[in-house]
Amino acid sequence: MNREREHPISVHDVTVSYDGTAVLSGIGFCVKQGEIFVVMGGSGSGKSTLMKAMVGLLQPARGRVLYGGTSFWEADPDVRRRILRRIGVLYQRGALWSSMTLAENVALPLEEFTGLRPGEIRDLVSFKLSLVGLSGFENSYPSEISGGMMKRAALARAMALDPEILFFDEPSAGLDPVSARLLDELILELRENLHTTIVVITHDLESIFSIADTSIFLDSADRTMIAWGNPRVLLEQSEDPRVRRFLTRGRLSGAPEG
C-alpha cells in the first residue's frame, strides 16, 4: 500500500466492457513519478479505451484506477473532481472548444478553478501559448489554424493548471513527421522542466523509441496487455512474437512509421 502511495498512477486488474462485452481485461501496471509511460498497440487494441477508463470518461466493469493511492472510481464526486483537476488530457484531435478563441480555451480552466484576476489569467494564458509556440494566435479560432497548431494549443490548454499528470492520446496522429517529432521534443521538455508524469497512447514507433521510459503493449486479439517494460529492452528481450513483430515492423520494412 505504501508503495502504491508513491506512484502517481496505479491500475489494478482493470476490465472495461462495452454493452457487456469485455474489450480490455486484466490490465495492471503502475506509473512512476516523472516518467514517460507509453501505452502501445495496434489499431483496435483498446489503447484509447484504457485512457478513457483512466481519465474518468468510462467506468471500468472491474478493477481499480488509483491516483496517489486514492481509487478514482470509488471516490466521492468531489474527490474525483479534485483528482481530475490534477490531470491534463490532450485529445487525439485536440478537442479545442470550437466556439472559443485559443486564449479563451486556455483561460477557461483558469477561470473555473482558480481565483485569479482577469489580468493575471491573461498573462498566464499568453505565457502558456508562448510555451507551445503560439504567441500571437490568442484571438484565433480553432478553425483558423492548422492541425499541428491545434494540437499545440490543446497542449497549452491541458497544461493550464500545471497538472501533475498529462495524458496524450495519439499525439502524432494526423501530423506530418516534422510536427510529430516537434511534439515529441515538447513532451520530453515538459518532463525535463516541469517533472510532469506523462502517459502517452500511441502506435508511432519513432515516438515510442524516442520518448518512452516504460511501456505496456496491448494486444488486439487477446484484449489484454502482454508486455510491460522499456520498449528498447522489450525489443531485445521479449520472446513474444507479437511484441517483437510490432516493435520491429517499421525497421524491417525500412520505412519508418509516421
Binding site: G56, V89, Y91, A95, L96, S98, S99, E112
Partner: peptide, 20 residues
C-alpha cells in the same frame, strides 16, 4: 448540430475530464 459536433470532436469529453 452544435452539441453533436462537439461530441464528435471530443470537446464534451474535454469538459468532463476537467471535472466540468
Amino acid at each position: 448540430a452544435h452539441l453533436g459536433t462537439m461530441e464528435t470532436n471530443e470537446e464534451i469529453d474535454a469538459f468532463r475530464t476537467w471535472g466540468i
